[in-house]
Amino acid sequence: MTDTLINTLTCENLSKSYGGVVAVRDVGFTIAPGEAYGLLGPNGAGKTTTISMLVGLLKPDTGTVVVGGADLATDPMAAKAKIGYVPQEIALYPDLTGRENLRFFCRLFGLPRREVRGRVEEVLDLVGLADRADAKLDTYSGGMKRRINIGAALLHRPELLILDEPTVGVDPQSRKSILDGLERLVADGMALLYTSHYMEEVERICHRIAIVDHGSVVAEGTRHELVELVGGADRIELTLDGDVETALAKLRGLGGVTEAVRTTAGSVRLIAEGGRYLLPAVISTVDGIAAVTAVEVVEPDLEATFLHLTGSTLRD
């Protein structure tokens, strides 16, 4: 009960099946005010189904969703009033202007008539589209559409902003602008639930991350906690020209190297604690046995964690 009052979002035991196929199984997490929470998972992992249940578009088979103390099942109006939902597609009217779109959703969501005009201008400023507000949406660039798509979810001043892949198909400049804006919202105290295919986005803006696979949360924590799950060792990929077997044997005896394997005819993979600092010793160890023609040091990251936990890359 205490959690429910403190957290902006508390969801527990969410499950959803379609004709015997489990889409989401026992998903649960909390998001505190001012916290950005990321949902990472490959396509079909259950992210969108989870979000659909959180915003009330789908009824869960089991589980509860409480938003700002309001139970979505028993008090949907109060719960939904605290949620801003940014769908994956540009869910706006292409033949209306940006301003007309925002005004429509202001009125639809019951903002007092006297506040509509001011709030629309605020949001247009927030998403940086005040100068294009009177152009029809179908004349906007992809990035501008994404920004106004987010703006429409902010009109009723939600406590929790839920974004489903909000930067798909936008240019790097627009992406930066969107992420900067989201960071400002979080800094102002808004809670964020963010799903994306882009690992670097999630790593940048999310305080905590849940990795979702086959409908379940397989790991949850801060970026650091998740990376720790697969250990802190660096991976060193060496390409050698010379006596590879002898070089490999020498490298196995090098202090700090926990694993050394031959991956292809001329390639060797080393796993080593603080591998990036071990590089000079690695090169001197093989000196005179084989020439190092290429080297790559891979630090432990979310991608590696994701690969470790789900057995696939995020974009599979």
Partner: peptide, 17 residues
């Protein structure tokens, strides 16, 4: 199809609106 219906339904209005 264009997603505006879901956006409406996710807002604080009755689904029948």
């Amino acid at each position: 199809k264009q997603g505006t219906l879901d956006r409406m339904r996710a807002g604080p209005i009755h689904g029948w609106v």
